[in-house]
Amino acid sequence: NQESVVAAVLIPINTALTVGMMTTRVVSPTGAPAEDIPRLISMQVNQVVPMGTTLMPDMVKGYAP
């Protein structure tokens, strides 16, 4: 099972992602793949992402898996 990126903390809208904001988990439906964490760092979210929420590609500005 592939791990997806999950918010480790509450991420406010327009916040640039840091490694400490993200964790990985096997979830369904799958979100952004765990191996993309290095690409996701410094990208901004376009909505509030509550802690424990799977990071879906459409939540991150300019990100395409």
Rank of each mutant, 00 (worst) to 15 (best):
I13W: 05
L40N: 02
R39Y: 11
M59R: 02
P38S: 10
R25A: 13
E35T: 13
V48A: 13
A32I: 15
V26P: 04
G62M: 05
N46Q: 06
I11Y: 00
T18V: 09
N14Q: 04
E35P: 03
V49M: 02
T23V: 10
D58R: 13
T54S: 05
A34L: 04
Q47H: 02
M56K: 04
S4G: 00
V5G: 01
G20P: 08
P12M: 09
V9S: 03
A34I: 07
P33H: 06
L17K: 06
T54K: 01
G52K: 02
T54E: 06
M51Y: 06
T24P: 09
P12L: 09
P38K: 09
V49C: 01
T30M: 15
I13A: 15
V26H: 12
V45L: 07
T23K: 08
T15C: 09
E3T: 08
Q2G: 15
T53H: 13
V9L: 06
P12K: 10
P50T: 09
L10V: 07
G52N: 07
Q47W: 08
R25V: 09
D58S: 15
V60D: 05
A7G: 00
T15P: 03
G31I: 01
M22C: 09
A7D: 00
N1Q: 14
A7I: 09
P65F: 08
P12E: 11
G52L: 07
A34C: 09
Q44L: 11
P38C: 12
I41Q: 00
A32S: 07
G62K: 03
S4N: 03
P50Q: 11
L17Y: 06
G62N: 12
T53C: 12
M21L: 02
G20V: 10
I41S: 01
R25W: 08
S4P: 02
T18A: 10
P33W: 07
L17Q: 06
R25K: 13
G31T: 00
M56S: 05
G31K: 01
G62H: 07
T15H: 05
D58Q: 13
N1K: 11
P12F: 09
V60K: 03
S42R: 09
A34R: 05
Q44A: 07
D36P: 03
V19Q: 15
N46K: 10
T24M: 07
